[in-house]
Design a protein around this nucleic acid. Structure first.
Lengths: 309, 309
DNA sequence: CGTGGGATG
DNA sequence: CATCACACG
C-alpha cells in the first residue's frame, strides 16, 4: 500500500507526501530533523496484572520473496511471535521459498493467494500451535478472489488477518472499497457474536489526522478519504477497539507505512495503516500493541500484539 | 538474441544449447574444459600494405541502460573506435543515460528506437566525425517501425548497422524474417550500386556449422534454420563478404553470443551472430575483423573492424 | 538468465 | 521507489 504521484482527480488541490515534500524543499533549504517515534519497551502485563500469554505479529511484506531475501525472516525469529500474519505476499503457494515453508517455529501454515492475478495481493498466517479451525475469505464470492483474509479460531478468540483493498490511484476502486468495508464489518460482527476476535493487518486507512504525517494534503487520496475513515469509524462503533490508539491516545508520528519515494521513511513521512483491532471484550487482556518501526524489508513495518488470554 | 527452452516445434528431435548441455551433464560428471577462442592481436595493415584508417565497433548491448551500468562504456573508451554501432538499445531517446549522450569522443550521435513497443529493439550509431548523410530504416514501411537500421554515408563507403529480426521461439516470426531478408538484401544491393558498404550488427543468424557450438541441435531453432542460413548465403552471393570468415576461413569456436542460461559463456557454448559484412570492392582495404570476446556487459560481445579506406 | 516495460501500490 | 508477472530473446 503506497502512494504515487498526483493523480488526475486531486491535481487541483490535493497535496500528498511527495508533493508536500517538494513544496517544503522549495521553502527551506535545510531539511528538518525527522520526528521519530520511539517504540517504548513492551508491556507484558495487562492492566489487571495478568501476564501476556500470546504474541502476534503482523507485517505487510510487499512481496514475500523479496522480503525473505532482505532478511525479514531473521527479524521474525528474533521477535518470536506465536502467530505471524503476513499481507501482500505476492506469491503463489508453489513458488514459496523453502526458508519459510520449512520453518519449524511455525508447524501450522495457511496461505491464501489471488486466484486471477498471479503475484498480486495474498495473505498468510503461520502458527506455533494448531488453530481449532481456519477459513479463507469472508464468505462473499465477490470479495474472496484476491487472497485478502484468513480467519483462525483459537480457544478463546478468533484471529483474522486482512489485506484490505486499496482504493487506488485516482480513487478508481473507492466504490468497491466501500462495499468491502460494509461487508467486512458484517463478517466481523457475525464472528464476534460467537467469540471475541482480534483483527490484524493492513487495513489501508489512516483513521485520524494523527495517523499520518500529511493529513491536509491527503484528504482526496487513497487511505485517507472521508469514506475510508468513516468505514474505520463504523468498525469502532460496532464494538471494536484500535489497540494502539487505546493504549496511546495522543501518540503522534507513529506510522507503519512509508512510501519508498521521496526518502519518506528517513523523514518519517508515514501513515499508520496496520492495526490490531479487537473486540472490546478482549481489552482487559490487552498488554501492549507495538509498532516495530526499526524492522526493515518492506515499505511497511511489522506490528506486534501482546495479549493475556 | 537468446534461446529458451525446448519449443513445441522442435520438441521431438531438436536439441539446443541447454538441452544438449543437460544431456551432457548426465553422461559425464566432470565438465570438459571449455574450448576458448583466443582473439589474436589486431592486424592494422591491409594485405596490400596500407595502414588501417578507420576503426568500427559493433555491439549488441541487450539493454543500453543496464550495459552502461555494467561499464560497457569504459570498454568502449579503451577500444576507442571511430564509429560505435549498438543494437538492442531497448531505450527511448528521452531515457538515455547522460553518460552516453554527453560522450565527447562521439560528437555525432544517431538513434532509432521502436515506434510501438517501448524498450524493444533499437539501434544507435555514434561517430567521431560527421557523416555526409544519415538515414533510418530501409525505406519499407513494414520494416521500419522497430528501430532496426541506421545508414550513414561516409566519403568512401556507406556504413549500415542492423539488428535483424529474430525468428522467435517456435519460429513464430520466421515468415516475417524471410520477407525481411529479401527486402534488406534489395536495400543493400541498391546502396552498393552507389558506393561500397560495410554492414555491421546482430544479423541473427549463424551462417555455417562452424559458426555455432551445437549445429546439429539447432537446425530447427531461430538463428540456424535453413531459411535464415540461405538468406545469409544470398547476401554473400550478391557481392558481399563476411569479413571474419574471409580472414579466418577455418576458425572454429569463435562466437559473439552466448545465452545467459546454462552457464553457456563459461563453457563457450555460443553462436556467431554479429558480423562485419562488406562489399567485395572494400576487401583490399580490409585489415582485420575482431571478436572481442573478453568484453562483458551483454550476452553478446563486441566486434571491431579495421579498415584502410 | 537477464533486460525491458506495465500494473500496482 | 519498490514489488511482481509478462514479453522477448
Amino acid at each position: 500500500m503506497k502512494r504515487g504521484k498526483k493523480s488526475e482527480v486531486d491535481a487541483a488541490e490535493g497535496e500528498q507526501d511527495n508533493a508536500a515534500a517538494a513544496k517544503k524543499a522549495k521553502k527551506t533549504k535545510e531539511p528538518e530533523a525527522p520526528i521519530l517515534y520511539d517504540d517504548p519497551p513492551d508491556k507484558i502485563y495487562s492492566q489487571d496484572g495478568r501476564p501476556a500469554t500470546t504474541k502476534i505479529t503482523s507485517w505487510n511484506v510487499d512481496g514475500l520473496r523479496a522480503w525473505v531475501k532482505k532478511k525479514g525472516l531473521e527479524w521474525v525469529r528474533e521477535e518470536a511471535p506465536d502467530v505471524l500474519c503476513l499481507q501482500e505476499t505476492k506469491c503463489a503457494e508453489k513458488s514459496l521459498p523453502a526458508e519459510i515453508t520449512s520453518m519449524p517455529e511455525f508447524p501450522h501454515k495457511f496461505w491464501s493467494g489471488s486466484v486471477e492475478k498471479e503475484g498480486y495481493s495474498g495473505v498468510a498466517m503461520l502458527c506455533r500451535t494448531q488453530p481449532l479451525n481456519v477459513t479463507y475469505g469472508i464468505g462473499k464470492e465477490e470479495h474472496d478472489k484476491e487472497g485478502r483474509v484468513i480467519t483462525a479460531e483459537f480457544p478463546s478468540f478468533f484471529l483474522v488477518t486482512a489485506y484490505v483493498p486499496n482504493a487506488g490511484k485516482g480513487l478508481v476502486r473507492l466504490d468497491y472499497r466501500k462495499t468491502w468495508d460494509t461487508d467486512f464489518l458484517a463478517y466481523l460482527s457475525e464472528l464476534d457474536r460467537r467469540k471475541p476476535l482480534v483483527l490484524c493487518g493492513d487495513l489501508n486507512v489512516a483513521h485520524q489526522e494523527v495517523d499520518l504525517k500529511n493529513p491536509k494534503g491527503n484528504k482526496k487520496n487513497a487511505g485517507f478519504t472521508p469514506e475510508e475513515r468513516e468505514g474505520f469509524t463504523q468498525l469502532m462503533e460496532a464494538g471494536f477497539a484500535d489497540s494502539f490508539r487505546h493504549l496511546y491516545p495522543d501518540q503522534a508520528n507513529a506510522y507503519t507505512f512509508w512510501t519508498y519515494m521521496m526518502n519518506s521513511r528517513a523523514k518519517n513521512v508515514g501513515w499508520r495503516l496496520d492495526y490490531f483491532v479487537m473486540s472490546e471484550a478482549l481489552l482487559p487482556g490487552l498488554c501492549d500493541s507495538k509498532i516495530r518501526n526499526q524492522a526493515l524489508g518492506s515499505d511497511h513495518c511489522p506490528i506486534t500484539l501482546h495479549l493475556a488470554v
